[in-house]
Nucleic acid binder design. Structure first.
Lengths: 352, 352
DNA sequence: TTGTATGCGTTATCAG
DNA sequence: CTGATAACGCATACAA
């Protein structure tokens, strides 16, 4: 590992000059010197020491990415294809922009804060963080932050949220169910904060349009955690006879439940319709293919990184709460029900 | 951000003493001083600057993780659930051990090398790297390296490979197909190096046991790249009539193909049987559930990190080529064929 | 056009 | 028990 000083010594010039050549500040250096330095640069394949650079400047070129792992939700959070694809897009864009990515998925916010501070990370991308945690982070970390899938009230602290038309997506999906004659719709979420809450609002709005009052007992929360999940699914299975459709907050859950239910004799969509959210690969692959709300995780990741880097470079961001578009994707998991919207007419045949 | 020097000044003592207290070298410091320092530590929530530490020591506490993205294979490599779950496990273990994870997925090896050198990464975990690339990296990077899914010849350079019983897995799977009466089996891979090659060896060995000579035209390579893939699948579709079973090198491809084929009228497993490799979540979820070879990505990630950290700490690793166990998981995607093993008897009904 | 000197925060050496 | 000082590699303000 050759250093600037080594090269300066070899050429009998100062480190300043070498440094200037490296950074292209070649206007003040004679062409001859430039050539000699560049020759050495190539020859020894000089690689700068970023710890040193980071120490002497204020910036580290590191972007921290953190997913708040909901405790024990899956084996690990990356099992959710939406997160992993999004993360892949973020990584690619960070790299393309010449930054480095440090990743941290724990749910220990204090530890996250220490990590971020200890490396003097230039900017932070936070996925699915809740308001309280965000406040904690903001109080100690002063650099730019971009949120994804967050509904933190803006308050005083500045951030940018790269969000989604969650409300609209849920609204349109619910409308679709209603149009197909469904009246007894369960809304499935795995929490009631942030994104899922907003989707529920959209759901309610669509119901209201049809003069249906949302009933809180139709709001079903799936227990997270590998062990609780099984019990939770069983419970949902028994409740399912009260509904004609399960509207899920993510493809991940939709697909898991569809599999569980169909193993127990429920025919989809004949006995029970399903919808998802995200449009991950698997929803196109399973049969029946899942009717869902499409979003573009690649674009989202890129936008998040672009925005963050703009903030790092001191640009003003006009829109601190962008909402990326969603699109209803109708596939085969929603049954058309007779004009009366009568529910469960041929249900019990399939159950048990 | 308070520094050691700040605290030393506040207490009127030297930085050395503060540093000693921080590192628990308390044997040479009076209890009174220890208490005073620790009080400040808490009060200001001191966080060390890791760039500085990394500069003055030889170690950075960073572990680099790199997946060689095969050019344009997917939208991004993380779309493959096996990789993403493995990565999640690696991240969790790195964190648990007090290290930091820097990730890099490009296929530009030179760039990877620069990244690793510029941060003076303590150790490297490389996923799915090929021999030539490994040699390049080794020539410039001298710290410990752990390989996952690699079959680089050991040569002189030292590394540890955390592998899998690939040969055995493929052997057993092929045997399973043979026992169920299949004789015309296509072997599907997306490359013929490393892991997939080893699996092919196992496949051949099983065929040999049944006195069947492997025919290279039964070795089907799926074109990577989003655009080529479509054409490739179509081609495979037309070739499929020659076979009773498609044995795939990953669940990912198996599942993709099953979906594509069944949309075109091929019934699985009645018309064509499928097997996979990895046992990712999706194989349990699709119908028919996929017969596949199970491996444990969580354990694998943990072992990789554990081994690497041992190497970093200078311990000798007894086994530089561990092969984690696999297990055949029989589900519903393989048909039982009459004792003659006649192929395609009821095939053309479903095709076209 | 080039060089000198300094500081970034930490650890380590060595002397008191 | 404690402290001064150097060193890590780089960038920059300031001289020459």
């Amino acid at each position: 590992m050759i250093t600037i000083k080594d090269m300066a010594d070899m050429l009998g010039i100062s480190t300043t000059t070498v440094s200037n050549v490296i950074h292209g500040k070649t206007s003040e250096v004679s062409q001859k010197t430039v050539d000699r330095v560049e020759k050495l640069l190539k020859e020894y394949d000089y690689v700068p020491n970023n710890s040193a650079r980071s120490l002497s400047q204020k910036c580290s070129k590191i972007i921290g990415v953190s997913i708040k792992g909901r405790k024990g939700q899956y084996d690990n959070i990356m099992a959710d294809p939406f997160f992993s694809v999004l993360l892949g897009a973020i990584e690619a864009e960070i790299r393309r922009r010449g930054y480095f990515m440090m990743i941290y998925t724990s749910d220990d916010i204090q530890e996250l804060i220490r990590n971020v501070l200890t490396w003097n990370v230039d900017g932070l991308i936070l996925l699915g963080i809740l308001h309280d945690d965000f406040v904690k982070i903001r109080s100690r970390y002063k650099n730019p932050i971009v949120l994804i899938d967050s509904y933190a009230p803006r308050d005083i602290m500045n951030y940018v949220n790269v969000g989604l038309e969650d409300e609209k997506g849920a609204y349109e999906m619910t409308l679709h169910l209603l149009e197909r004659g469904h009246r007894r719709i369960a809304f499935l979420a795995d929490n009631m904060e942030g994104v899922d809450y907003t989707r529920y609002i959209g759901h309610q709005r669509a119901l209201a349009k049809y003069g249906i009052k949302a009933d809180s007992k139709d709001l079903l929360i799936i227990q997270r955690g590998v062990t609780e999940m099984e019990a939770s699914m069983e419970e949902l299975y028994y409740m399912s006879r009260n509904y004609t459709a399960f509207m899920c907050c993510s493809d991940y859950w939709a697909v898991l439940l569809m599999s569980y239910f169909s193993d127990r004799g429920i025919r989809i969509p004949e006995d029970l319709s399903f919808t998802g959210f995200d449009d991950v690969l698997i929803s196109r692959i399973i049969r029946p293919a899942l009717t869902t709300v499409h979003q573009d995780p690649i674009r989202r990741g890129e936008l998040a990184v672009d925005t963050l880097i703009k903030m790092i470079q001191g640009e003003e961001i006009p829109d601190w709460d962008v909402k990326l578009p969603v699109e209803l994707v109708i596939r085969d998991s929603v049954k058309r029900i007779g004009s009366y919207g009568g529910c469960g007419e041929d249900r019990d045949a399939g159950v048990k």
